[in-house]
Nucleic acid binder design. Structure first.
Lengths: 204, 204, 204, 204
DNA sequence: TATGAATGAGTTTTCATTCAT
DNA sequence: AATGAATGAAAACTCATTCAT
C-alpha cells in the first residue's frame, strides 16, 4: 500500500486487461469472420480465446461491444499498414501500382479480418464506420491522381470516377479470392488493375 | 358451376396463392433488407405483411425458403428486364451499353431488394446462392465479349478480367447510390462504366 | 314447410349427420391407431375421411370429442361381436375355447381399432373407459368358470386369478401379433391359451 | 490445489452432473407417467425438477433423449435388482419364483416409472424401444427354462409360449395394481403366477 | 352444408447474460 | 479474476379452432 504500489497497480492491471481484450478480439475476429455476427455465439468466441464464457463479460459488456471493438481494431490495422508502405515511392505510376498492390496483398493472411469487415460492415448499425473506410480509400486514390495532374504527369479527367473504379475492382478481386472464385494471385490482380487504371489515364 | 367456372377454379386459387406469396416476399424483402436475415424474425415478416405468423408458413416452409424465394424473385426480375430490352439492339457496343444500363437502372426503385442481396448474401449460409448470381452476371458479360470477338468486332483480350471489372464497377456504383455516397444518376454511371469498358476493349 | 316436411326434415338430416359421423370416426380410428392421439392432427383425420378440415368441426366439437367417440364406437363393436357367437355353444370346455378364439380372431382385420384402444386407452383421461372393458372381460370369463363349477364340471379354484390370466395371455398374444413380434396365427394362439387354461382347471 | 484435489476435480464435476441428470430424470418420469409423452412439455419437466427450462437442455439434447434415458434407467435398475437377487438361488423352481417376484415387487414404489413405460411405450415412435424391453424379458425367462431342460429338471415343452405367458401375467398383475383394479399384494400375485408356471411345466 | 385460409397460443430449442463458487 | 451452471427471454415452427366465402 506504499505510494508507488498504489500508483503502479492500476497501470499493471490496465496492461493485463488490454492484453486480455486483444486476445479476445483476435478470437472474435476469427469466429465472426467465419460465421457472421448473428450465427456466432459468445461461447464460440470464448472457446476460440480459450477462456470461459463468463470471463468474456469481464472485459466486454455485451456481444455487440465485442463486435464493435473488433471492427474498430480491424480498421485501425488496415489504415496503419496501408499508409506505411506508400510514402517510399513517388510518381503517379509507382504510387498507383504500389497502393493497389498493398490493398490486394495486405489481406492475404487476414482473410477472417476481411470477412468480418465484409459481413459485419453491411449491417445497418455499422454503415457509418464502413462508409468512413470507403471514403478514406477514395480520397487517397483521388489525391494520387490530382497530384499527378498537378505535377503535369496526367491530363485532367474524371478522376472521381476512376478512383472509385479502382476501389471497386480491388474490392471485387479481394472478395473473389476470399470466396475461392478466382485462382489468380494478388500480384496478378494488382498488375491487371494497375494496367486498367493506366489505360484509363492515357498512360498505357 | 358452369364449365368455365369449373375449369377456372384451380387457376383462381393459384392466382390468390401467388398473390399472397408475392405480398409476403415484398414484406420479407423490406425487413430482411432493413435488419438483415439473422436479425429478422418470421414475426417481423408477418407483421410487415399484416398477416399472422402462422400464415407465413402456409406459403413458405421455412425462413430460409422465404429468403431463397426473395433472391430468386429478384434475380428473375432482373433477368427478365435485361432480356426484354437487350433484344432491341445488336452489336457489342450497344449490347454492352444496354446491359450495363439495365443493371444500374433496375435497382432504382428496388433499394430494399438490393440491400437484401447485399447484406444477406454475405452471410455464410447464403454464399452459394450469392456466388451463383455473381457467376451468372460474369458469364453474361463474358458471352457478349466473346460473341463480339467471334463477329470480328473485338480483338482477343483478357475478357475474363474485363467482365469482372464491369461487374465490380456496376456493383460499386449501385452500392454508393444505395448508401447515398454519390449524387450521380444511374444513367451517368452507366455511361461512365460503358466508356471505361470500351476503352479497355480498344473501341473508345 | 308442410307438416310432413317439418317432421321429416330433421330425421333425414339426422341420418345424414350420423352417416358423416360414422365416416369420420372410421377415418379417426385408422389414423389415431396408426400414429396415436397426440401425433395425429385433425387434418390427418379430415384427409383420411376425404373431407375438409373445417367440415370435421361441423360434426364434432373438438379433437378430444372425436377420440372419445371413436373409442366408444370401438368398444361397442367389440362387445356386440363377442356376444354374438358365444351363445351357440355350451359346456365349460367349448365356451372357454370359443370365447378365447373369438377374442383373438376378432381383431385380425381390425388392427387399427385395436391399436387405438391400446394407445389411447392408456392415456389418463380414458382410464375409466378402459377399465370398464377389462372388468367386463374378466366378469365374462369368471361367469363361465363359475357356471362350470355350478354344473359340476369344475372343482373350485382361484377362478378370479385364472380369468385374469386368460385375459392377460389373450392381450399379450394380440399385441404381439399387432407388433409383428409373433408368427403364430390367432387360431394357434387360441389353442395354446385354451390348453393352458384347461390344465389350470384340471381338465387337461 | 493439492494433487488429490486436482485429480478429483473432474470426478466431482461428473458426480454433480450425474446428480442433476438423475433429478431431471426423476422429474421426467413423474410427469411423463402422469400425462404421457406427447402431452408433457419440457417446461413441465423443468418445473417438476424445479429448474429453468433451459437448464434441462444442459443435461439432455432433446425431449426424446430425456425419455430414452428415463426408460434406459428404469430397465437398468430392474435388471440390476433382478440380477442381484437371482445369484442367491439355483434350480428352475427357485429362479423362476424369484424372477417373477422381483418383477412384481420392483414396481411397488415406482408406479410413475411403470406408468411411463406403459403409456409412452405405446406411442408409435417408441415401439422399437418397448419391443427391446419385451424381448429381453422373454429371452430371460426362456433361458431359465432352457437351462432347466439342459439340467434335466424339465422336460421339453413349448417354452417360448410359456415364457410369454409368464410375462403377460406379470404385466397384467402390475397394471391392475397400478390402476387399483386389484387388492392382492405383489407377493400373492407372484405366488399365483409361479404356481401357474410350475403347473404348465409339470412341476406342480 | 362444405371449404380451407387464417389465426395465434403453445411447443421445442438456443443463447446472451448473470452470479455463486 | 476466472469459471461455467443456471436462467429465461426470444426464436422457429405446429396445429386446433374459427370464419368468410
Amino acid at each position: 500500500m506504499s505510494l508507488t504500489a498504489t500508483v503502479r497497480t492500476p497501470t499493471r492491471k490496465q496492461v493485463l486487461t488490454d492484453l486480455r481484450r486483444q486476445e479476445i478480439l483476435a478470437a472474435a475476429v476469427k469466429v465472426f469472420g467465419k460465421k457472421g455476427f448473428a450465427a456466432t455465439c459468445v461461447g464460440d468466441v470464448a472457446d476460440a480465446a480459450k477462456i470461459a464464457k463468463g470471463t468474456v463479460y469481464l472485459y466486454f459488456d455485451s456481444k455487440e461491444e465485442i463486435y464493435a471493438a473488433a471492427v474498430q481494431m480491424a480498421v485501425a490495422q488496415l489504415r496503419e499498414r496501408a499508409a506505411e508502405r506508400i510514402r517510399t515511392v513517388s510518381g503517379v505510376r509507382e504510387r498507383l501500382a504500389l497502393s493497389i498492390a498493398v490493398r490486394l496483398e495486405f489481406w492475404q493472411d487476414k482473410q477472417s479480418l476481411y470477412r468480418l469487415l465484409l459481413t459485419v460492415g453491411r449491417e445497418a448499425q455499422h454503415k457509418r464506420q464502413t462508409h468512413e473506410v470507403l471514403r478514406a480509400g477514395h480520397a487517397y486514390f483521388l489525391s494520387i491522381l490530382k497530384e499527378g495532374e498537378a505535377a503535369g504527369e496526367l491530363e485532367a479527367r474524371d478522376f472521381e470516377m476512376i478512383a472509385w473504379a479502382i476501389l471497386d475492382m480491388i474490392r471485387g478481386c479481394n472478395e473473389r479470392r476470399l470466396d475461392h472464385l478466382t485462382e489468380r494471385t494478388p500480384q496478378e490482380d494488382a498488375a491487371a488493375i494497375t494496367a486498367f487504371a493506366l489505360q484509363q489515364l492515357g498512360l498505357a
